[in-house]
């Protein structure tokens, strides 16, 4: 998603540097953020715009720089150069209270009681004790885990501890939530509960950054994605736009026809048939075909005259495919 600036706005001061639209619509903007660790570059000129009230997927292979970027947003580390804007203002220490962070490397004090610990972490985020208690009660009831209050973390299973961890992350009702591999450590049932809670939070107006390399959850949740690879952003935008860009007009066709062989022969002279399967006895023909940009309607009409069409579907690349394709092409280019 590239923003088009009006020239007049470009001339305006610092505050409007991203244009009014960016300020209004984005909860978080990073501008050419660079971070070195010694000689190693962890982030190289990464600029992102994370829209309000959506789930933003931050993708990339291990060691790409995702965690470093997230740590910069959380002000755990600081960029060597570049700026981060939160809610239209330059990122400041007091913004910590408006960000919730569930790190990938996460845990709780093992020998501390659940309730006490949750209260402590909530108070560190700036909640008052009474307010924290009230909200914790709500969440403990909602997850039906009220009886854990006086247990120690070491007495709970890993999945149980993860639930507590999730609650303390969102308890202070942050404007921006950052989840780094949130589903690791959950069984499928609990993962689903958490997924629903995340969607719920989004619907209530929270903006969410979702960092993962598990693509199936990306498809389900994210409206926007950015792909970080070898310290650089190599792709970002609305997931549906990216898919459109990455689709290559390959159609999956299934039809009932007597003259399957002849039809395939005829089509392959004009188009590229990627794969085909012709079942003579059942008179079933299945094939994958690469079509030119705009011709699908014509072909569809033509095929309809040749037999009974069962399906004619454009294969849209999965996020996973896009991920792998982009990363690979990037690696080959270098």
């Amino acid at each position: 998603m590239v923003l088009k600036f009006h020239k007049k706005e470009m001339l305006l001061k610092h505050f409007y540097i991203f244009g009014k639209k960016a300020y209004m619509n984005n909860i978080l903007v990073t501008k050419e953020v660079t971070k070195h660790f010694g000689k190693h570059i962890a982030l190289n000129n990464v600029s992102l715009e994370i829209p309000r009230n959506s789930i933003y997927g931050l993708l990339g292979p291990n060691g790409a720089g995702k965690t470093t970027l997230i740590r910069i947003i959380n002000q755990i580390t600081y960029p060597d150069s570049g700026k981060v804007y939160f809610d239209g203002k330059e990122l400041m220490p007091e913004h910590i209270a408006q960000i919730g962070y569930l790190p990938e490397e996460r845990g709780l004090y093992k020998s501390m009681k659940v309730g006490e610990q949750a209260l402590y972490l909530a108070q560190l985020k700036g909640l008052s004790k009474t307010e924290a208690k009230k909200r914790l009660k709500y969440w403990f009831d909602r997850f039906e885990i009220g009886e854990w209050w006086n247990k120690k973390i070491q007495e709970l299973s890993k999945g149980m501890a993860q639930k507590i961890q999730f609650i303390v992350t969102i308890l202070h009702k942050p404007k921006l939530l950052i989840f780094d591999e949130p589903f690791s450590g959950f069984d499928p049932i609990n993962a689903n509960i958490i997924k629903e809670e995340i969607i719920n939070l989004k619907e209530k107006g929270t903006s969410i950054i979702f960092s993962t390399h598990r693509m199936e959850s990306v498809e389900e949740l994210c409206e926007h994605i950015a792909l970080i690879h070898q310290s650089e952003k190599i792709l970002d935008g609305r997931l549906s736009d990216i898919k459109k860009e990455y689709k290559n007009n390959i159609y999956n066709v299934g039809m009932h026809t007597e003259k399957g062989e002849a039809l395939l022969e005829e089509l392959s002279q004009k188009f590229h048939i990627i794969s085909s399967e012709n079942n003579q006895s059942e008179q079933q023909l299945k094939f994958e075909i690469q079509l030119p940009e705009t011709d699908s309607g014509e072909i569809l009409a033509y095929l309809a005259t040749k037999g009974n069409l069962n399906n004619f579907v454009e294969t849209i690349p999965s996020a996973n495919e896009i991920f792998i394709r982009t990363v690979q092409s990037k690696s080959i280019n270098e």
């Binding site: 959380n74 002000q75 755990i76 220490p93 910590i96 960000i99 962070y101 790190p103 490397e105 996460r106 845990g107 709780l108 004090y109 093992k110 972490l121 560190l124 985020k125 961890q165 303390v168 992350t169």
Partner: peptide, 18 residues
Amino acid sequence: IEEKTSRIIEVIISSVKP
């Protein structure tokens, strides 16, 4: 060391300065 091994450290320093 306990905070490191229990992995709570990152949770905490996202709220307070190291």
